[in-house]
């Protein structure tokens, strides 16, 4: 009786795992991993600005491509297309202008129009963006999220599946003041009241 009692106590002692070394290992590993852990994910939006180029204008010469301009004004957002192989009527049909709705730019409407252009001219991938000076950076990024790609569905993990729309973004700016005259324009970039007139490379990158 007494013997069996001692035996069971011994077994119990042997059954207890010594977890202290494992704990020590964890105590070293966890601070190390905490230092290298990323709790936020940084990405980038590739963009470019217009550059002076000795080559021809960037306005496409093939009927499968159009160059899209997007003007973002204080109250409106407008898109227009340019191509040397399309008539004025065809280009006008691709254009559109939308006013703000409840203080927000109607990015979904703009995206639908861009999808339409992409459907007709699938090789187009460049959009020149001309925001107004006071446009907030966050608002600009939200608009770009809708012009660069669009959601086509969900994958098996529930993540959005995206398809490129106009992934090459070129930033430019509108000249709001009339230049005094062409000869005095130090950069030679302004025609009367027009947009920045520069020949552009497709400097965007993916």
């Amino acid at each position: 009786m007494a013997f069996s009692r001692f035996k069971s106590a011994a077994d119990e002692a042997a059954a207890d795992l010594n977890v202290v070394p494992v704990m020590n290992l964890f105590m070293v590993l966890i601070p190390f991993l905490l230092l290298g852990a990323t709790f936020f994910h940084i990405g980038v939006i590739p963009t470019s600005t217009p550059t002076l180029s000795p080559s021809d204008s960037d306005v496409p010469k093939t009927p499968t491509t159009v160059a899209v301009n997007m003007e973002i004004d204080v109250d409106t957002i407008a898109i227009s297309a340019a191509s040397v192989s399309l008539s004025e009527e065809q280009l006008t049909a691709l254009s559109g202008e939308w006013g703000k709705k409840a203080g927000k730019y109607p990015v979904k409407d703009v995206q639908a129009a861009l999808l339409d252009i992409k459907g007709q001219y699938p090789e187009s991938n460049t959009i020149t963006v001309l925001p107004h000076e006071k446009l907030g950076y966050q608002d600009l990024v939200e608009i770009l999220d809708h012009t660069r790609n669009h959601v086509t569905g969900k994958d098996k993990d529930g993540e959005d599946v995206r398809e490129d729309l106009f992934p090459v973004t070129i930033f430019s700016r509108k000249i709001t003041e009339n230049p005094i005259n062409e000869g005095e324009d130090p950069e030679g970039e302004g025609e009367a009241g027009g947009e920045e007139e520069m020949e552009m490379d497709e400097g965007g990158e993916e």
Binding site: F40, H41, I42, S48, Y137
Partner: peptide, 30 residues
């Protein structure tokens, strides 16, 4: 910073362009 306006952002991009940099990657929080 997300609170900046386009005018300031473009001024920096244009300055970089004058130095020979014409490609930019705008850092964003995913």
């Amino acid at each position: 910073d997300k609170g900046l306006d386009y005018q300031t952002l473009y001024l920096v991009m244009r300055s970089a362009s004058m130095a020979g940099f014409d490609k930019y990657r705008l850092a964003i929080m995913k």
